[in-house]
Structures are given as structure tokens and as C-alpha cells.
Design a protein around this nucleic acid. Structure first.
Lengths: 206, 206
DNA sequence: AAATCTCTCTACCAAGTGGTAGAGAGCCAT
DNA sequence: ATGGCTCTCTACCACTTGGTAGAGAGATTT
């Protein structure tokens, strides 16, 4: 019986090392500012090895986006699949995003890079994570129906929540400009303030 | 009597045309992805003319940042100098940001570009707009003291407000991913939802 | 042992990059 | 008229860019 593992290749470690380094570089310096040579040198390999695994710089970028999308979906699933309700669910997501911002800031940086207005690859990432957004909007709708969240347009509410959470968790330079330190203690305080802010915005008064 | 106008040069129109085009390009495609040649061609001049007015690409970028900072400060001053209170003041700012996002999206795009984590020029912009942030934090503090806004840490609240407003006003690709059209009607609805969202978050219940 | 497959390498290239040197054209004061 | 100033240009350069061609080493299959 044939094993159906039609893996594209055997040796995946080089490929994955390239993906990791590219994610970090694209998420930090941006796509245009990262050359294949610089990426290769950082990995201790030759540029042509990168071009063996990925046919072009653009193809590498797209692979990075696909890989990042999987990570994001996985992180979201972990936080969303426990059947929590109301602000408990919101808090679980927020904890996840803050953890991501602390441990893998380049991942959020890549989202930032890709979602730049006019980005050619924005649609690619959007297609991948669309189900997550859909689930989130459904969640908001259900919570409104149950009376736990204020009534409003779920999509627009989702946009507000996304902007607020991602901004508070990841906009490090804005935080510096405002005068907030980037220590762990302040990060925890930021998360708590964010929770209070969102609770006030979401929970009806009765 | 000497006119103290020690203007760096007489002919400022070329210089300003370059600044405008560079702001648009850097704010849309990013600094690294915009070559001086492309910029010059778009303006119908030679690259060397750009390098006559700005000694290097980096110097042009810094001049663009300074120019953008002045525009941002001016826009903020118009919205903030009328002595409004509470949500009236917040609404005035939000209207201003939405107008900016509609009429000069590249300006917000440049802020995005500059405030990327690890940006070398983030500090430059931060230094320029620091007074604006300080005034905003003071405003929040006063409103809290007057009992019109919920008590919380003004700096962290400012971060939340900044992220939410700028995101809802300008994150066009995220909006597309969520499924929001980018028509004028939807933009107005977005602004209204944002106002309700922030009013619920800011105004105490009593 | 030979052939094939997988993987990384060296060698090279055409196009594009930011930047230098300096010519020339118009203008203004002498 | 002329010498200097302001401004834009042509000519050029060293370097980096993404990408091609193909050699060679090691393992696996025949």
C-alpha cells in the first residue's frame, strides 16, 4: 500500500529555516528592504539555495504569508475553541494576541506589512484568515442576541476590536511615542486596561 | 531693514513638488520600495534634481517626515483648539482623522510606515508629534477629573483610542478582509459606529 | 558499478540602485 | 558685458539586486 505522503521534498529543515528567517526579516524590515543575499548570509547559506527552494523572491513571500496564516489560525483556534462566552472569550483572545506580540512580534509585523494599503499580497492573507474573521463576527452576533454584548453592526464592531487589540498589543513605536515603557510589567498593565476599556465598550448597562 | 526671511532657497515649488510626491510614494509603497528614479520620472524631472534639493534619499525621507508632522499637528490643532469638552472633543478629532483618511490617505500611510517596529525614523516623527500626544493625555486627565470620562491611566487610554481611531479610519485592507465596502456611505457608518463604541467605553454610567 | 535523484554550491549577468562630477542655461547685480 | 548665483541637466560609476546555468557531492535506486 502506497503511503500517500506526496511531500514536495524530503529535506524540509532548510526550507523551514528559510521560511522562519524570511518571516522575521519581512515582518521587521519589510519585503522590499530584505534582499535574498542578506537573508542567505544570515542563514549561512548561499542565495541560490533559497532560489532552489522557492522559485522567486515573490514566491518566498507568498509561502511566508501562507505559513504565517496557518500560525495565526492555529493561535486563534486554541483561544476560541473552548466554548467560552462573553468577555471570557474576549479575554482569552486578548491573552493570545499579547502572548503572540511578546513571543513572535515578527508575526504581527508581517500582518502589518501585508495589510499595508496597496499591498499586492493583502488579498492572499485576507483569503486565508477570512474564516477566522467570519467566526469572530458570528461570535459577536451570538453574544448580542444573548444580550451579553451591546447591539451594533458585528462587522464594524469587529473592526474596532481588531484595531484596538492589535494596536494596544503591538504598536510598540506608538507606545514609545506616548511614553509607555516596554517592560513586562507595563505590558500586563496595558492588557488589563485594555480589558476594562473593552468591557465598558461591549457590555450593556442594564 | 533686513527682511529676516532666511529662506533656504527662492524657488520652493520644485522642492515642494518633490516632497509631495515622496510623501505619496513613501506612504503608499514604503521607503525601501520607492527609488529616486521612479520618483523623478513621476515628476517629469531627473533624479539629480531631487539630489540637488535633498542631499540623499535618507535626507528626503526625513524632510518628508518633518513635513508630514507639521501637517498632522496642524490638523490636530484645528480640531482641538476650540475648547470643546468630553465626547464633543473626541468627535471633532475623529471627524478630522476620517477626513484625513479620505483626502490624504498617504499621510496616514506614512505614519504607518514610520511607526513600523524597528523603524530608524520612528523617533524623529515621535519627537515632532510628542506635544500632540501630551496635550491629548492632558485632555483625558482633565475629563476624568471632571467626571466626564471613566477613570483610568491616561496614557494607556490614549493608546487604546489612537489604535481604535486610526485603525477604523485607515486600515482599508483589514476592512476589506472583514467584508466592509469602502464606499462613502459605509465610511460614514463606520464613523458613527466608532463614536458609539468610544462613547460606551469612555462615558461613565453614573 | 552505473545511473539517477536531491541538494548546495560557484560563476555569471542584465537591470537597477544611490550618489558624484561637472556642464550649461537663465537671471541678477555689478 | 560680465562674473556670479540658482537651478536642472547629461554623463558616469561602483555596488547591489533578483535570477540563470550548470557543476559537483552525496545518497538511493537500478
Amino acid at each position: 500500500m502506497e503511503v500517500p505522503e506526496v511531500t514536495v521534498t524530503r529535506n524540509a529543515t532548510t526550507r523551514e529555516r528559510i521560511l522562519d528567517a524570511a518571516l522575521a526579516a519581512y515582518g521587521t524590515d519589510g519585503f522590499a528592504a530584505t534582499s535574498l543575499d542578506a537573508l542567505a548570509e544570515q542563514l549561512g547559506i548561499r542565495k541560490q539555495t533559497i532560489l532552489y527552494w522557492f522559485p522567486s523572491k515573490q514566491a518566498l513571500f507568498e509561502a511566508v504569508i501562507d505559513s504565517a496564516a496557518l500560525d495565526l489560525i492555529a493561535a486563534f483556534d486554541v483561544a476560541a475553541s473552548s466554548g467560552r462566552q462573553g468577555m471570557d472569550q474576549v479575554e482569552a483572545i486578548i491573552r493570545r494576541v499579547f502572548r503572540l506580540a511578546a513571543r513572535r512580534p515578527q508575526l504581527l509585523g508581517l500582518v502589518r506589512e501585508v495589510s499595508r494599503p496597496g499591498s499586492l499580497s493583502a488579498e492572499r492573507l485576507a483569503d486565508r484568515v477570512a474564516p477566522v474573521f467570519a467566526r469572530a463576527a458570528d461570535f459577536l452576533q451570538r453574544e448580542m442576541d444573548a444580550g451579553r454584548f451591546r447591539r451594533s453592526d458585528p462587522s464594524m464592531l469587529l473592526l474596532s476590536l481588531y484595531s484596538t487589540v492589535v494596536g494596544v498589543a503591538g504598536e510598540f513605536e506608538v507606545q514609545r511615542a506616548i511614553g509607555l515603557e516596554s517592560t513586562l510589567r507595563v505590558a500586563v498593565a496595558r492588557r488589563r486596561e485594555l480589558m476594562r476599556f473593552l468591557a465598558a465598550a461591549l457590555v450593556p448597562v442594564d
